[in-house]
């Protein structure tokens, strides 16, 4: 009999039907990609970065293409918690997709309020704390680059919320393992990495920075080797389950992250190139596991360490 792989993966308290998710900020609230495939196919949908109050976002231009990637400086434009709960979440729930909400705050207090309110409503399987968004002046980055601040923030959010807690790490640090351990000590259930790498483009016609926000976050295949290395390091540094991302376009890219130690992966920028990337990767992963005679993703997770 042919061996049929089971794509389900467990990440601590969380079980996903398959290990391929859509990354925060790249898939909206799901509606934009619904014409291409049913969102319920996703292992999980990490929705647009959410803040307590509505955020207008950064002045344009917000995007710049770079070799094998792009810079973005969206500035967390989003409708805020209230509208999310009233308008977006009900629509998401009707789509039967596993929803993870990515949250960002301008203060510890805001993170705590967001976590408390979101864990009080049904229809969300986990929260992802965005510690690392480099585009917001008062927001994430200060929290995201100091181990002590991360441990403190995560433990406060932990106390305020019953949902599985994912902490998303920034690559813009000297030692990501130290931050991973801090998040673990604060009570994180899962770590996701990496967020975008801070970068910049100068417009040579004007001699000025091109982006309205001056700096932006680099994503896409350009960052993949950096991200794979960080997943590999963090796997060794903590016992927490990991979600890997950064430049995944093809199934081999996803495999690299899983072999480096990620139990699930997220696809961001590639959605813009091919809206069908996530379902394509899920099928290709299935084919790969079957061809190798593996029962499921477990056979490859962390393979690079064995």
């Amino acid at each position: 009999m042919v061996n049929m792989a089971d794509l389900r993966v467990r990440l601590g308290p969380l079980t996903l039907k398959n290990p391929v998710m859509a990354a925060a900020g790249t898939f909206g609230f799901g509606a934009e990609y619904a014409p291409f495939f049913a969102p319920e196919k996703l292992g999980a949908l990490v929705v647009n970065g959410l803040t307590l109050r509505p955020r207008e976002g950064n002045p344009p231009p917000r995007l710049a293409e770079t070799p094998a990637g792009m810079l973005n400086a969206i500035g967390l434009q989003n409708p805020g918690l209230k509208i999310f709960l009233e308008e977006e979440l009900p629509r998401l729930k009707s789509g039967r997709v596993a929803v993870i909400v990515n949250i960002a705050g301008e203060s510890e207090e805001e993170y705590v309020i967001l976590a408390r309110e979101l864990s009080a409503v049904p229809g969300i399987i986990a929260l992802e704390i965005n510690l690392s968004c480099p585009n917001v002046k008062q927001g994430g980055l200060q929290f995201g680059t100091s181990a002590a601040a991360i441990a403190k923030l995560v433990s406060k959010v932990r106390q305020a919320c019953a949902l599985p807690l994912i902490v998303k790490l920034t690559p813009n640090v000297t030692d990501i393992s130290e931050l991973a351990r801090a998040a673990e000590s604060g009570g994180a259930d899962i770590l996701s990495l990496v967020n975008t790498l801070m970068g910049m483009v100068i417009d040579v016609d004007t001699g000025r920075p091109f982006l309205g926000n001056i700096t932006g976050g680099l994503s896409g295949p350009a960052i993949r080797p950096v991200a794979v290395r960080m997943v590999y390091e963090v796997y060794r540094a903590t016992g927490l389950p990991l979600i890997g991302m950064g430049g995944i376009m093809e199934v081999d890219d996803a495999l690299q992250f899983m072999m480096a130690g990620a139990r699930a992966v997220a696809v961001g920028t590639a959605n813009f190139i091919d809206p069908y990337t996530v379902p394509r990767l899920i099928s290709a992963l299935d084919v790969y596991l079957d061809a190798k005679g593996f029962n499921g993703p477990e056979n490859i997770i962390g393979a690079a360490h064995r």
Binding site: P59, L63, I74
Partner: peptide, 24 residues
């Protein structure tokens, strides 16, 4: 400048005033 072209990435912003309120 566009990435997704679909409204998902919030990248191609222009400021619009409608009913006295402005937003991207």
């Amino acid at each position: 400048r566009m990435a997704c072209g679909l409204g998902a990435c919030q990248g191609c912003a222009v400021k619009i005033r409608q009913g006295g309120e402005s937003s991207y």
